[in-house]
């Protein structure tokens, strides 16, 4: 078995240790004997249809986000959207999440186009939402928790029929108003929880791996790993989130 991960703009959109997520996906596959290939796509590169199982994109600084938004919209957006409709997965964080929505409206300057994977839009806010986050969610019908760290001023609002990733217990989430965090559309997950999200949320990592395998290898499940360190880190991060807010 083999999975191909497409890391979008790794040098431009990697502000908060976002590559930790790619490391986690890759290792959790390798430890199970699943081959992994990580391919980087940068400015100007086209997305070859059917070549990727998981798309990943992190967050960047304002300048980088502007550079990336036009490239994503013009050279990659349509293919990525179609791939996701056909069963590919995605994890997009912060800036990546915003650009996978319909548009991003900054405080000044032109509106950035999004590629519309999520029915969501983002407008720049005046307050920066910073801190530990803890949400309750449901993955593949199982209730679980996701914990991480957010740092954004964009406020994201979901369309009526778009499902959030989870409900905020601690933190701000999408917009600091409606208690939602992130978005899930088919196999695509968007979230504001950056950096080391997947390592300490192994259920979320495996959710993506399982969904990605399903397209090419239907009926094959993945074995459980020894997640004792991951689960401890998860538990203590939740404790810390409750304490620091």
């Amino acid at each position: 078995m083999k999975l191909v991960i497409c890391h979008l703009y790794p040098d431009l959109m990697n502000i908060y240790g976002d590559r930790g997520n790619v490391i986690a996906l890759a290792k959790r596959c390798l430890w199970r004997g699943i081959d992994v290939e990580v391919k980087s796509l940068g400015l100007g590169d086209k997305v070859e249809p059917g070549a990727y199982d998981i798309f990943f994109m992190g967050g960047g600084q304002d300048k980088e986000q502007v550079m990336v938004s036009h490239d994503l919209y013009e050279t990659k957006g349509e293919t990525i959207r179609r791939e996701i409709e056909q069963g590919a997965c995605a994890l997009v964080i912060c800036g990546g999440y915003q650009l996978f929505g319909n548009f991003y409206r900054p405080a000044e300057g032109e509106e950035l186009p999004g590629i519309g994977v999520f029915d969501a839009y983002t407008i720049a806010g005046s307050k920066r939402f910073i801190g530990n986050v803890f949400v309750e969610t449901c993955l593949d019908g199982r209730k679980t928790t996701v914990v991480g760290f957010e740092n954004h001023s964009g406020k994201t609002y979901l369309g009526k029929n778009e499902r959030p990733l989870g409900e905020i217990i601690v933190g701000y989430g999408n917009n600091g108003e409606d208690k939602t965090e992130g978005a899930v559309h088919l196999g695509a997950i968007g979230t504001y929880l950056h950096g080391s999200l997947l390592p300490k949320n192994p259920e979320l990592a495996d959710f993506l791996i399982r969904k990605a395998l399903k397209r090419t290898y239907p009926g094959r499940d993945i074995e459980a790993l020894d997640d004792s360190v991951e689960n401890l880190a998860h538990k203590h991060a939740i404790k810390r989130a409750k304490k620091t807010h």
Binding site: G195, A233, H236
Partner: peptide, 28 residues
């Protein structure tokens, strides 16, 4: 925010580590 540790290239310590103890508030 401790996510910065994922930008540190711990991979470069391959084969060099014998006994490692992780400590501190974010030991895990």
């Amino acid at each position: 925010d401790v996510s910065w540790i994922w930008d540190v290239d711990f991979e470069n310590l391959k084969g060099k580590l014998s006994n490692v103890i992780c400590a501190g508030i974010r030991a895990w």
